[in-house]
Amino acid sequence: MTATHSPNLPEVRDLLAKQEIHEVVLRYCRGIDRLDLDLVRSCYHPDAVDHHTGFDGTVDEYIAWVGPKLELLGGTLHFLGNHLVELFGDVAISEAYATNVHWGHPSRGDFTSGARFVDLMERRDGRWAIAERWAVREWTRSDAGRMTAPEANGPRGARGGGDLLDALRARLHR
């Protein structure tokens, strides 16, 4: 006869917190890639601070800074890899590795960068969000001249509310 393992409530609570934090980072990437700045803003606490290459400031200043930069691009895709979360009660350190593809920039051209999102996360009123973010750039590679036209007709991504994901969500949220 084997003993059954009963989950320890603190362990389950920690797993749920880590999942919630992971989803904050995923929503941030979706918001950037789909040019949904409201979704990006929702990943931060209102008094949050962001540090990116070429930028340091409040979340409102960050949104005002990144929006026009994203609008210049044809698009972006952020791929998350390793993600480690260290919990300290209602505060956590989140480190997520990312490969970020950018295309269609009118003067810089296409490029890919490797980065880590190092976040100080806080749970306030039961909600995990970014209190302070460091987007640590590890490397950048030019992809100029490497993009090609699609091989055939088919679904394509869109930004600013016109993506297939937006249509599907609207259909299910009638």
Rank of each mutant, 00 (worst) to 15 (best):
R141M: 06
T140R: 11
A48P: 09
D110C: 02
L39P: 04
G161L: 04
W103C: 07
C29V: 03
L80K: 00
N8C: 07
R159K: 06
T112I: 02
L26I: 12
R123V: 10
E61I: 12
G161A: 05
L165P: 00
E20C: 12
G154I: 06
E20G: 11
L26N: 14
A129S: 05
R137E: 04
W103Y: 13
W134A: 14
L87V: 10
Y28T: 10
F55G: 10
L70W: 01
G126E: 03
R30C: 02
G157M: 10
A170K: 13
L9V: 13
C29Y: 01
V25L: 12
E132K: 08
R123S: 12
D56C: 12
G54D: 13
G54I: 09
T140A: 10
L70N: 08
W134H: 13
H45M: 10
F79K: 00
T4S: 14
A3P: 09
G161R: 07
D33G: 05
D143H: 04
G57Q: 06
D60W: 01
R108N: 01
H45Y: 02
H173S: 08
R169N: 03
G161C: 06
T148W: 06
R146Y: 04
I21Y: 13
P7Q: 07
Y62Q: 05
R30A: 03
L72D: 09
E151S: 15
L164I: 09
G109Y: 04
R13K: 15
C43D: 14
P106F: 03
D166R: 14
A144S: 10
R116Q: 02
K69H: 04
P46F: 00
S94Q: 05
H102K: 00
R156K: 15
H22P: 01
R34F: 00
L87D: 03
S6M: 11
Y62R: 07
N100Y: 00
G31Y: 08
A48Q: 05
V24A: 08
G157H: 15
A115C: 09
A131Y: 02
Y62N: 10
R27W: 04
A3S: 15
T4L: 09
R146W: 02
I93E: 14
Y44F: 14
I32D: 03
L80S: 06
G81Y: 09
R108T: 07
I32E: 08
D47E: 13
R127G: 03
V91R: 08
A149Q: 15
T148A: 05
R133Q: 13
V66D: 01
A96F: 01
K69V: 12
A144E: 12
L84G: 02
Y28S: 11
A135Q: 01
H102P: 00
D110E: 07
I93K: 15
M121E: 05
L84W: 07
R41P: 01
N82K: 12
L37S: 05
E138I: 02
R27C: 03
I63V: 14
K69M: 13
S113E: 02
A129L: 02
V12W: 13
T112W: 00
G162M: 08
V12M: 15
H5Y: 11
P150I: 12
R169M: 15
R159G: 01
R108C: 00
D90Q: 10
G31M: 05
E61N: 10
P155T: 05
R34T: 03
P106H: 01
D110L: 03
R27V: 08
A98M: 05
H78Q: 07
D56H: 15
G67M: 04
A64V: 12
G161K: 07
T99R: 00
L9Y: 07
F88E: 15
A152T: 14
